[in-house]
């Protein structure tokens, strides 16, 4: 355990000492937030009003729902893209010869691999929780409708998504042998993942085939969970003052429209299933990573 803790400390220190990489990781969510607010804010506000089907919404409530969508989308994307940035230490060590140097020590390769995994998880968690803190402040300014349960569940979602991102990036980075390959993969993941996990555009707006295809990707379920927990309170507030039946209908319509409720080939996917899919996918990826490391040892 002591050796593992030193390996993790070394990896984290190398990451945070490289100011270029560290600030890029911190800047990524902030740039994404800026782009969301500057270019997509009005699109989402209009979309919220149209999904509300003519029910007059206060500007404050629209802002609160839009903020929930923005921050949840940002979190869903960052937990994965930052993990790819954080895993650069593993590839750099391979490229610079540090990995070969580590393997002349008595430390088992499995422990070295575990060290990279845990340090990637820690680094990603730190950056994502900084982003989440900034996100809570943004939501607070826009209009706070979150309960304590929403906050706790969002924290749990962030941790689970970070673990998923760490496992996914560990498997992909295992095959990378150059700095250029890492940069290429990072750029591809940053550009594509937001669309593939349903973070940038609500799934309901996509063509049926694409909608169904996206539901086969585990990241979508994580995105659905953070959407539900960061937007649910604000959307529920839309129904306040309306007859219960009408309120339930409008709230459900809005939750469906903004992916707080997910559907797999028309069937509703309850939150516990979303957690199950994400956890199973994470475990599967960890299994693949372990198998890859074991294969390399042989």
């Amino acid at each position: 355990m002591k050796t593992l803790s030193y390996l993790i400390a070394r990896n984290c220190k190398v990451y945070f000492r490289d100011k270029g990489v560290f600030f890029t990781s911190l800047l990524a969510p902030l740039i994404l937030l800026f782009l969301f607010v500057a270019f997509l804010g009005n699109v989402y506000r209009d979309s919220i009003r149209s999904v509300a089907e003519g029910i007059p919404l206060s500007d404050a409530l629209v802002e609160s729902i839009a903020a929930g969508w923005l921050i949840s989308s940002l979190l869903a994307v960052c937990t994965v893209t930052i993990a790819f940035t954080a895993n650069i230490i593993m590839v750099q060590d391979r490229v610079n010869g540090q990995a070969a140097d580590l393997f002349v020590t008595p430390v088992p390769r499995s422990l070295v691999a575990l060290g990279y995994f845990i340090s990637t998880f820690l680094v990603t968690s730190i950056v994502c929780f900084v982003a989440l803190g900034a996100g809570f402040i943004y939501i607070g300014v826009a209009g706070w409708n979150l309960s304590a349960a929403d906050i706790l569940l969002t924290v749990a979602d962030t941790l689970l998504l970070t673990l998923f991102g760490t496992a996914l990036s560990s498997v992909v980075c295992h095959f990378l042998r150059s700095q250029g390959a890492v940069t290429g993969v990072q750029a591809t993941v940053s550009a594509a993942y937001g669309f593939l996990c349903g973070a940038y555009i609500p799934i309901g707006n996509l063509a049926t085939g694409l909608k169904n295809a996206i539901m086969f990707l585990p990241g979508t379920y994580g995105t659905g969970l953070v959407h539900a927990h960061l937007m649910g309170g604000a959307i529920s507030a839309v129904g306040e003052g309306l007859p219960p039946e009408a309120a339930a209908q409008i709230v459900k319509g809005m939750k469906d429209g903004f992916d707080c409720n997910l559907y797999f080939f028309g069937g509703a996917v309850p939150p516990w299933t979303c957690y199950l899919v994400l956890a199973a996918a994470t475990l599967l990826l960890i299994g693949v990573y372990v198998a890859l490391c074991a294969r390399r040892r042989r």
Binding site: K2, T105, P106
Partner: peptide, 13 residues
């Protein structure tokens, strides 16, 4: 730090 992290891999802490 380089010496410290290396030594720890051999149990020297």
């Amino acid at each position: 730090d380089n010496l410290k992290y290396r030594a720890a891999l051999y149990g020297v802490t």
